[in-house]
Nucleic acid binder design. Structure first.
Lengths: 392, 392
DNA sequence: AGTTGTTTGTAAGGACGGTTGCCTAACAAA
DNA sequence: TTTGTTAGGCAACCGTCCTTACAAACAACT
């Protein structure tokens, strides 16, 4: 229809650009105010104005619209002993709305929760997958969502879903072998059925978002490694998830981590094992929970520690190039504390530091998640916060 | 002075946010038009409107201001056989302005050039470093800049500099040991002296920008590896350079690539060699130009190929985790063709593909730069295009 | 040749968002 | 009480984009 040819040059030229209207400026400034109230706590209008660089007039206008929507509330006078008129504190009303979050990482049960805007869990529900795949699996998910929405006691801001698989920005599942989903517009379908905004992302990505927002991330550049039945990663740079060319960023589980001839460790991991992907020696074959449990089964404590440390060293070797290339400030491990938290972590960090230049190694952290097993759920909630309010 | 405490939460909250005014929207839309004309060639106003999503009225307004600034020119009627009034083609005037670009990667000579807006080199000059460091090195650079500015025949859009070292977004050189620069506000100093906009970035980063803009990059996610006296990398994701937590992203040269006990290659690289950074087995100790020349000196062609392939395999091993984590679409090598272009590249690509999951490996490219030795210079020019016009 | 329909580019008017300048209220310190 | 400072609101203005309307230029049909 259009006379303009849709050439690759066009798409390239406009890939990361879109028209900007004054109303987008408004939305952006609104997000900035919410972001500030979210992270830094209640503030007076005048303080918001100083912190954002906007004028008091504009902030007043923004705040009044936020008050009208019920997102923020006035919390009374500022009782400092300072000169001048005391300001009126304005704070985010964490209980004004609720978020429905669902985690599909577990193959057996779908885990869901209702959270408030501060990430506090209000309700928790699960549903059995029962081996369902394809459309039936969508039905199970939809059922849990309906149940959770029914359990909310406030208006629902939106629904966030973290799922294994490759998922694009619009919430379309390009492929999720575990569920038998291929090219499925999951967010669109759920949104139509629930009549709510729905955001879907890879579960490692949601875990990374959760860690970024609530895990007390320090610097810039975060990689979250989820260790379960498989191994996945989510990367947050400059406050945004890295998507990758095919939306497959974070596929660290299937990087070769063990070679045929290079194992001379003190607690040898043995020959590279075959992997579900059809190759051998993938990181998943040594770092996944089942693989580690098999390896340490029946070992005495010292041998267990040595075996886990050996796994940690392989992890450190794989992480070193990534951490160097991106100059990450933090690597976070999500998974069973008893496997990951001890010698594995220590060995991985030591190896990572040995193998990177000081300007990188001296700043990088490697730690367990501070969100426990709720990481994926709260991350799915951040998906909604980010999508609906611009807050991360 | 301000009553608002400057807490970490504040900086965190506002890190990737800034107030947005309608004029920023205007600037963004202006950039979008320029971007389209730059990459897709001349268009009529109506076509620009369709491609950008803005109305014809707004485009007319934007185009008229660009015409007034001399950045674009009208190129006559569109002579298609279509119905309706033929449009007036509007095109970027590549010769309306010129760009001064300087490359400091070479320790012996500073290379500079005058380019037009299409990246075509108009003039070329160099200056001897003569072992200068610190302020004296700045003087040499400044002298070359003045010479180049004097050689321009059109108004100068700005000056772009690519330099080794760690450089922040404002063009402050945090550390550049080769030049003896530490915490030096280079862009600011040059800008004050030349009375022109000056943009400074790491040389690997400028090379990556050049490749991204003029190298025919295909997908999303580009890593450019510069191989010279050392090894550096620049990464472009979603059209923007990756900075890193300490602005040290791309420090791949000092990732350990060779271990004490894991070398069983067909053309052994031997024991890990000491590196200038004080550790052993860094990628630089096998992949830098001097290291490779030493290794192949006196070898017959077959042995040379085998040795270079062995280096390539080490490179592939280091790249695999990075390419997987970011799902990169392209890795580009910059450096001597005779060393990098043959068996080394082939072995690196094969190793990279072997060690990554198909969804990643089947899409990734690994090739020599298409910009020859001018990559860094044209990249420095892109720095200016990007900074002044929003075009990449 | 005249009519019709399509497309281009411009003009006028309106909506929206932010700013500056000025005002009043509330408080501490002199 | 006076003075200086800070908070918050009101009015007027400017910039940016939109919608609507219109003239010009052309192809195709009658």
């Amino acid at each position: 229809m259009t006379a303009v040819a849709d050439t690759p040059q066009h798409r390239r030229a406009l890939r990361s650009t879109a028209k900007v209207l004054p109303e987008h400026a408004r939305a952006s400034n609104r997000s900035m105010v919410l972001q500030l109230l979210f992270h830094a706590g209640p503030r007076s209008r005048a303080e918001l104005a100083r912190a954002t660089g906007l004028t008091r007039v504009t902030i007043s206008d923004l705040v009044s619209s936020l008050l009208a929507q019920g997102l923020v509330t006035e919390l009374g006078q500022q009782a400092d002993g300072k000169v001048g008129k005391p300001g009126t504190l304005v704070g985010l009303d964490a209980e004004a709305f609720q978020i429905v979050a669902v985690d599909l990482a577990d193959d057996e049960r779908v885990h869901g929760a209702v959270l408030d805007l501060s990430g506090a869990v209000q309700e928790r529900r699960t549903a059995a997958v029962g081996g369902c795949t394809g459309a039936a699996a969508v039905e199970v998910l939809l059922g849990l969502c309906r149940e959770l929405v029914a359990a909310t006691t406030r208006p629902v801001l939106g629904v966030g879903v973290g799922s294994p698989g490759v998922i694009d920005l619009s919430g379309r599942v390009l492929q999720a072998p575990n569920r038998g989903w291929y090219d499925l517009p999951l967010a669109e379908q759920l949104s139509a059925a629930l009549e709510l905004p729905v955001h879907v992302a890879n579960d490692a990505d949601t875990a990374a978002l959760g860690e970024f927002t609530w895990g007390g991330a320090s610097g810039n550049g975060l990689l979250v490694l989820t260790v379960g039945g498989g191994v996945g990663a989510g990367i947050v740079l400059d406050g945004a998830l890295v998507q990758g060319n095919e939306h497959a960023a974070g596929e660290l589980g299937h990087v070769t981590a063990l070679d045929e001839r290079d194992e001379h460790d003190q607690a040898p991991l043995g020959r590279p094992q075959p992997c579900a992907c059809g190759r051998r020696g993938c990181l998943e074959t040594v770092l996944s929970v089942p693989a580690m449990r098999r390896r340490i089964a029946g070992l005495d404590p010292a041998a267990t520690d040595a075996a886990l440390a050996s796994v940690g060293r392989r992890l450190g070797i794989v992480l070193a190039p990534v951490v160097s290339a991106l100059n990450l400030s933090e690597v976070v491990l999500c998974g069973p504390e008893e496997l990951l938290g001890g010698p594995l972590r220590d060995a991985a960090l030591a190896t990572l530091r040995e193998r990177t230049i000081p300007v990188v190694s001296s700043h990088v952290q490697l730690r367990m998640t501070s969100l426990g097993e709720h990481g994926a759920l709260s991350g799915a909630a951040v998906l909604v916060l980010s999508g609906q309010l611009g807050v991360t």
